[in-house]
Nucleic acid binder design. Structure first.
Length: 573
DNA sequence: GCCGTTTTCGGCCCGACTGTTTTCAGTCG
């Protein structure tokens, strides 16, 4: 079994969690977390390194002990330490660490009390048994309950990036030795939904294939849910379900349409079909028994008297009506993005240098990149003070000469403080090329107070872009309360841009908010918020989200040329 | 557990906030 860096990292994170609950040496715990992070970021698969060079490279944060553990994992012999920990500590306790308000100390206290599962925890919280424990109170009880409910809402849903990499891995595995098979991705993953419940794959084959058998024999398959002659469903490690259907090449369009969904979209289409005297199913569009269209999605849409609808729009939100009228938006494409306006470097909490970020940006075909490290308030992220920014900007001047005509912008991600002021003085901000202004603390204010705080911050003339506007972390933290419409109106008045943050666990603002911003005429900036060069690729998730929000090239600031961009940024100042 | 060293032992990111306390532990970022 080929183990990927990501999975090695998961093992180390698990060990760190177990150790934390055990109240082990905090620095030992951190060593495991650091190692996990370093491995996850390592650009080459370690399995491949070991196979080709007989050893794994020297990775900062990985010493002899962890190096040996990695090799053992790759060779499939497991980690004795982890086995021991699993024997001592119930694995269900690890899930507690994802609950807001619970850290290792409180989890340990729960364990001592005999509370080992989420169900037991829920009951104890409801019956106010937790407040009997030292360090627990009634506020904490309700916080825990709320957090468990949020977790249940997202149970068995996966973030877009995880879903994509699972999908790529499975596709690659399935296609080995199957040159006659074509695999299509359908379902919510194709629609680019921010979380994905299961993978829907369609297989088209010119001749008989045993690809279903291959799926159920997948090494990471945990459970075969069903396995017939046309379809197989398995559950893989981690809980994701994979559905594979064999379809006929003559009906590949109708099958793809049907299995891409959404359900609402399909219902809307079938209604239109009925109006035309047709019947639409996964096998094709039929008039009586005559097959009118089934080979491609395009011809089915055409036969129904409408334009082709991109998968991201297929949510039953008026796209069918728009397709009939012929006024669907020309959805934004990744190739139209000219640069990224929110990235971090080693100067704050990023992992790569400015130059490394620039090289990657150039490779992506960008013509500009804004460096936006954290301001001093975000201390954990190594936020910079005015002097540090000035020094960084001198470096940017030098790099701009080297990389000409590529342009590096002097930016900052400046904290919006509790009172609505910005974390850096205007005397400094006026010398920046742009500011991304974000909230990193004070999430629990009332809607009124939060909105006022944001509006006050936006009143600053150097405020360009509102960063990750809702503050949500998908599955972990709800958006804070605020009045988005009010923010949009004020943004429009002040020439402020709204960020669509592409980090897979943020995707903030969401699709509906994007559409709302567009309707208000407020332009969006699609940013990666990359903390390493490789994360510049996260932009594709933001693009997906933007497309789900009906955004076009002209709705997005960073599709404009550098000169136009600078003009637009300065016009508000 | 890693790292660096005036090289084998001492330091490792730390401030704000929350909810618990009544002076602070635990969580969070």
């Amino acid at each position: 079994m080929v183990i990927q860096n990501r999975e090695i990292a998961r093992y180390f994170e698990q060990i760190a969690d177990y150790l934390a609950i055990q109240n082990a040496n905090p620095f030992r715990i951190r060593a495991y977390r650091n190692a996990a992070e370093a491995i996850e970021r390592w650009p080459v698969e370690l399995t491949k390194c070991l196979k080709e060079q007989g050893s794994i490279p020297k990775i900062p944060g990985i010493g002899k002990d962890l190096n040996d553990k990695i090799i053992k994992l790759i060779k499939g012999s497991g980690i004795a330490l982890l086995d021991d920990l699993k024997k001592k500590i119930p694995s269900t306790l690890l899930e507690f660490l994802d609950i807001a308000g619970l850290g290792p100390r409180r989890v340990q206290a729960l364990w001592n009390k005999g509370i080992k599962t989420k169900e037991e925890l829920k009951i104890a919280a409801k019956e106010h048994k937790l407040s009997e424990l030292k360090g627990f109170g009634s506020d904490l009880e309700s916080k825990i309950l709320k957090s468990i409910e949020l977790g249940e809402k997202y149970q068995n849903r996966f973030l877009l990036d995880d879903a994509w990499s699972f999908c790529e891995e499975i596709k690659k595995y399935l296609l080995v030795g199957m040159p006659q098979v074509q695999l299509l991705v359908a379902g919510s993953l194709r629609r680019g939904k921010e979380t994905v419940g299961d993978l829907d794959l369609l297989a088209i084959s010119k001749n008989k294939t045993n690809i279903l058998k291959r799926l159920v024999e997948f090494q990471k398959c945990e459970k075969v849910i069903n396995y017939g002659s046309k379809k197989a469903t398995i559950q893989i490690q981690g809980g994701m379900q994979v559905d594979l259907r064999l379809i006929d090449s003559n009906s590949s369009g109708s099958a793809l349409l049907y299995f891409t969904g959404s359900k609402d979209h399909n219902i809307a289409l079938r209604k239109i079909a009925i109006q035309h005297g047709f019947k639409l199913s996964e096998y094709g569009l039929f008039k009586g028994n005559v097959n009118i269209a089934s080979k491609t999605e395009k011809e089915i849409y055409q036969s129904l008297g409408m334009n082709y609808i991109e998968p991201e729009l297929r949510e039953g939100r008026g796209e069918v009506e728009s397709a009939i009228r012929g006024d669907l938006p020309q959805l934004i494409l990744q190739s139209q993005i000219k640069g990224d306006l929110h990235v971090h470097t080693v100067a704050s909490d990023g992992h790569d240098s400015i130059a490394q970020m620039v090289v990657k940006a150039k490779r992506k075909g960008y013509t500009y990149l804004a460096i936006t490290d954290h301001s001093k308030r975000t201390r954990i992220a190594g936020g910079l003070n005015v002097d540090a920014f000035k020094k960084q900007y001198e470096e940017i001047d030098r790099l701009n000469e080297i990389y000409h005509p590529f342009r590096i912008l002097k930016g900052v991600e400046v904290d919006i403080l509790e009172d609505g002021t910005l974390d850096l003085p205007d005397s400094f901000l006026k010398d920046t090329d742009l500011t991304v202004c974000s909230i990193h603390e004070g999430f629990s204010y009332s809607s009124k107070k939060q909105t006022q705080r944001m509006i006050k911050a936006m009143d600053n003339r150097y405020f360009n872009i509102l960063g990750h506007p809702s503050g949500r972390l998908i599955g972990r933290r709800e958006p804070y309360d605020y009045d988005f419409e009010k923010i949009l109106r004020f943004a429009l008045e002040r020439g402020i841009y709204i960020e669509l943050n592409s980090q897979p666990d943020r995707l903030d603002i969401n699709d509906e908010q994007s559409r709302m911003a567009k309707s208000f005429g407020v332009p969006i900036v699609i940013s990666s918020d990359a903390h390493s060069a490789i994360e510049l690729d996260f932009i594709e998730f933001g693009i997906k989200q933007a497309r789900r929000g009906w955004l076009e090239k002209t709705d997005v600031l960073n599709t404009f040329s550098f000169d136009q961009l600078i003009r637009k940024l300065n016009s508000g100042r």
